[in-house]
């Protein structure tokens, strides 16, 4: 799997937005089809469902949905392909995958809500970030 993906050459730039769009969908399909392999090599069966990983990949793509420049889309696709390659050839460890894609942006320390109930809103915001 990893070597077949690696042997793919960097494609020429997309001529139009439509072509770039198609490439994004092709990448999404490739990523979805490699999810079973990924779950296998990182032992994710009891941590996450394939559908959740699919949604995470879709969410990562949707983050850049406002980009309309085909060159920028190509660059993002290149980075996405690089990331997928690294994951499928086991260049990462299990906690990378779990931290980045299973637990997600909320971070590993999830607030379960019991310990700082008495704190003011200001303090809660302050614990999260001092930029507000």
């Amino acid at each position: 799997m990893s070597f077949t993906l690696r042997s793919v050459k960097v494609p020429p730039n997309s001529v139009s937005l439509e072509e770039a769009r198609h490439r994004v969908f092709d990448f999404f399909r490739a990523a979805c089809r490699s999810i079973p392999t990924i779950m296998d090599i990182y032992n994710l069966q009891d941590v996450v469902a394939p559908s959740h990983l699919r949604s995470v990949v879709a969410a990562e793509i949707r983050k850049h949905s406002s980009v309309t420049n085909p060159k920028v889309i190509d660059m993002l696709l290149f980075k996405a392909m690089e990331e997928l390659n690294n994951i499928t050839e086991h260049a990462k460890q299990r906690h990378h995958i779990i931290g980045q894609y299973v637990v997600g942006r909320e971070g590993l320390l999830q607030d379960t809500g019991t310990k700082d109930q008495g704190a003011s809103d200001f303090l809660k915001e302050f614990y999260k970030t001092n930029y507000f």
Binding site: F25, F28, R29, C32, R33, P36, P50, S51, R54, S55, A58, I61, R62, S65
Partner: peptide
């Protein structure tokens, strides 16, 4: 994109 995601779910 959701459309593609559903098709992939059906594939699975």
């Amino acid at each position: 994109l959701d459309n593609v995601e559903i098709v992939m779910a059906l594939e699975e």
